[in-house]
Structures are given as C-alpha cells and as structure tokens.
Design a protein around this nucleic acid. Structure first.
Lengths: 274, 274
DNA sequence: CAAAGGCACTTGTCTGGACAAGTTTCCGCA
DNA sequence: TGCGGAAACTTGTCCAGACAAGTGCCTTTG
C-alpha cells in the first residue's frame, strides 16, 4: 500500500486541484473546496459516467492534503450518489440520480424557473375565514379557528397548469394581506419575512375536476387531475400551511429515480420531458 | 477539549455499546456495529426526537473505539437524516424522514408486505407479441421487436387496487413462462434468476379509466386513476421492463417528505394512512 | 443588576501512520 | 501458450494527536 508522504507534486501538472482556489477563498475547509472542485468536474463532463477518478493518494498529492481529508471529500460525493466504487479500485463516476433541493420542490415559482419555464399566477381569492373541519384537522387547530385561504391559478408559460388552494395559520397568513400575491412566490416572500418553513409532507393522488377546477382550468368536470396535498411545518414542527394543488396531468407530473444503492428521490418535471 | 485516551471504561456502566456485540459478530467493522447500535436505540425510543446523544468522547469510551471511528458512525446517521447538530453541541436526534429502500419501492409484493397488507394478484394475460410503438420506444427497441407482456390485476387485502401492464424484453420475459405469475413477485423471481434489476425511473400522473381498467377494477369508465409509468434498467443500463400501473387513488397513493436539510425522498403509502 | 470575560466542554478540521483486504499487472514456470 | 502466484497498487479500517471554532455556564467587574 502507498504510505509515502504525499507532499512532492511530481505528478500534479495536469490537475492543480487546490492551489488556485485556496488563495481566494478566505477560509473554506479543504475537504469542502476539494469536494466542490470534484463535483464541478463531474458536472462539467471532465469526467463522465463510468470514468475512474484519480486514486486517493494521487488526489492527496494534487490537492496538497492528507489522505484523510481526501477521503472526507470523496465521502460527500459518495453520499450524494455521484461516485461509486469497491475496495481495491479507484472511485468511479456513477449514474447521476436527479434530485431537487428543498426550495425548488416546495415552490411552484422556483420549480418553474429551474425547469426553464415562465411561472405565472392569477389570484382568484384571498380571504380570512374559519377553517372547515378537514383543514383544521390538518393544521392541528381547533375547528372554526380563523385561517387565511388563497385560491390561485398557476400558469406555466402563460397557460393554466395548476389550481392551488392554500390555507395558512393566522399569524402567517395575515402577512399576505401586505403582499401582492400576483407578483410571485408566497413561499419566497414568507421566508424573507423570517417565517420558518422547514419541511413539507406531500401526498400525491388523482381526483376528478370539480365545478371550480373545471371553470378555472378550462376542462370538463370529472377530468382526471393530479393532486398534491401538502402540509408545511416550521422548524419547531408547527403546522404552518396546508395546500391542495391540482395539476393538469398533461402539463406536469412527478418523476422519481431510484437505484439499488440509493433510495427514492423525487423530482417534479414538466410532462413533455417525461 | 477532551484529549485523554478513551481507554478506561470508567463511565460505561450505563451504556456498554460495543463489547457484547463484537464477541459474536466475526468481523463487522467497528464503525458499522456502532452505527447499527445507535440506529437501533433511536428506533427503539431509547432516544427520541430532540434528545441529545452522548458526546463523541463519551461514545468513544463506551465503544472502546477512537474518536475517528465514532465520527465515522455518526456521519452515517447524519447522512441518513437520523441526527443533526451544530458545532459545539452534542448531536441531536432529528425528525425522522421516512424513506423506502429500492426493492420495497420497486415491488408491489414487497411494498404491500412492508405496509402490513396482504398482496395478491390475478394474471389476466401473459403473451409474447411485437411491441407497439410506444413500448418499443421506451424499451429502446426497434419497432415490432418481440416482447413479453403481462396484464395483472393486483390486490390489497383481497380487494382490486391496481392494474399492471408490464412489457419485458424477450430474454427476460421468456423466463416468465416458467413461472406462475399468480403466486407472487415477478420482480423477486427475476432477481433470483440472476436478472440484474438495478434502477427504476418512475413517472406519476393521472389518467381516466379506459374500457379495460373499468372492467377489471370495477369502476366506471373515466374514473380518475393514479398512474405510475416505470422503466426498469439493468446495472449496465439496458432497459429491461416498461410498465404502466394504474392505482385506485382511494387505495394507494404516493407520499414524500422533504426538509431544508434533506432532499425529497419518496415513499408509496396506502391511502388510508395519509 | 447587567454585561464581559474566562473556562470547560463540545464538535470540526487536519495530519501522519499502520495494517487489512481487494484488484490489476506482469513475470516465470509448466 | 496458458496458468499461477507474487508484487504493486488500490480502498477500507483504525488509531493517536493537535489545534480551531462554537456553546454554555459561571464568575468577575463595572
């Protein structure tokens, strides 16, 4: 096994991994800088699926770091599913499993933008009223507690794509009366206001269009719609928002890729891609 | 900072983490044994959400391992979302994000069993025939290539819940003629036969029941169904199976939980739970 | 009484070393 | 020529130590 000190950069002409980067960034950890650089090269196409990365000792020479630090960087990529490998062989670039970060998956606006679409919205109604039984139960409130409800038609490239029925607990929802809900992302606005929106529980099923869906989405009553029910909680675990979103299934659907090595991760994609 | 040698078990009366376990297991790595034990205690309820774990140095004493090894075990739990924490404070048990392993998500039979339901199936048809255009395209075959198609009604607790239309490439599908497709899991059978089923690409949308769906699932034509289209690939990346599964939405749906720290992970749950 | 500072304790980062265990290459022998 | 085995190389595991950086508490000081 290689045990020499990885200090002399005899072989690093091709890949000066670390030096240029460390000089500018004031004090990011070495392992993170290295991991970022490796991630960049994989996304770049510098290395593609199936390619072998340099060995840990080579990387440690090129990065001017100890093998432990290199292993820390590689462990990060491994946990993200970017690389695989078995003992005895250098790590290999794995099949990339697409996934979406939290905000992209929570916010229609961010999702649309990240998919290269133009998001839009037309607010139909913004009202303060007592919660009905189902909403109260979901938000873990006493029946008839006041909530703020928003009914918005969401557009993709100017075309109606989804109807959103959101209910917010009062301390959160009252902020919406100071916000033009036609201009953009409620999710983004509330986060800017310091509201903690930390996790979401989503349930996906199918439902027939009711009277309101039919009129606003422009489809016959009974048309199959793809429904996402979402409960958003604060970091402390308090229910903040409950929403019932109904998508036109030919315009948006959900996509998941899973592998024997990695558990299922969900992304929502425009239907034309799938 | 604690720098003493964590060798003397002065404080380990309460939590003998390592000793009993290592004696029986011939040679599992220490960090894995430790991680398993910690996982077990969290699932047990020995520590619940919000509880602080012992500090790294305490764990290293109790486990008779170095701090590096303890950190390796904790890193595994962290990447699974079981614990969180910030520098300066001991790790804290996090909100558990449910997820499903590969086989449970791929196989109706395994999924049903893991949900405490009784899976069943009635094979309507098993046929070898040329692939139509759509199926051929999905399986990346020339049009009119022979494939094996299975039409099965899947049951949950004896009740029809899903209609499955699967198409297998010929070298895989031919094995099914030696298998009683009414007895159980095709997925499990094929894996036993040494077929590599390594990753799946799933797309979820909604569709109205057609003539066949209507008759077999016992609902009126046009009833909204939750559809999962699935393309299964071998480890080498070859398309092996394409399936169109239609669920009764009041019997099964999909559920995802995501947090600002962890990306979306999907599970399929019986509708009554959600 | 309240703010500031010090101290003990914690996790984060990094190094250097050692051996075990798996893979690949290549050379010598049958 | 083909096969076996050693050697070189790789990753996996584990240890010990050092310092940086963040947290919480208690004491001192104004």
């Amino acid at each position: 096994m290689f045990t020499g000190k990885p200090r002399l950069s005899l072989n690093s002409a091709e890949l000066p991994l670390y030096d240029q980067v460390v000089s500018q960034s004031n004090h990011e950890p070495k392992h993170q800088v290295l991991a970022d650089e490796l991630r960049r090269r994989i996304r770049n196409g510098h290395w593609v699926e199936g390619d072998a990365l340099p060995s840990e000792s080579q990387l440690s020479v090129q990065a001017g770091a100890s093998r432990g630090t290199v292993r820390q960087a590689l462990a990060a990529l491994r946990s993200e599913g970017l690389i695989t490998g078995v003992q005895g062989k250098p790590p290999v670039v794995a099949h990339a499993v697409p996934s979406q970060p939290f905000t992209t998956f929570m916010s229609f606006t961010e999702w649309a933008l990240s998919s290269g679409r133009v998001p839009g919205q037309r607010t139909i109604e913004l009202a303060k009223r007592p919660a009905d039984r189902q909403v109260a139960a979901r938000l873990e409130l006493e029946p008839d507690t006041q909530v703020v409800q928003v009914l918005r038609l969401r557009l993709l490239d100017e075309v109606p794509a989804m109807l959103e029925r959101s209910s917010f607990i009062l301390p959160v929802g009252r902020l919406l009366f100071d916000f033009d809900t036609d201009t953009g992302s409620i999710f983004g606005f509330l986060r800017e206001q310091g509201i903690s929106l930390d996790r979401g529980q989503h349930t996906i099923d199918a439902v027939g269009a009711d009277e309101v869906d039919s009129r606003l989405l422009g489809v016959p009553a009974g048309t199959p719609l793809l429904r996402e029910k979402r409960l958003t909680r604060s970091r402390a675990g308090q229910a903040m928002e409950f929403s019932d979103d109904r998508y036109l299934p030919h315009l948006a659907n959900f996509s998941i890729e899973n592998t024997s090595e990695h558990r299922a991760t969900l992304v929502r994609v425009p239907a034309s891609v799938a």
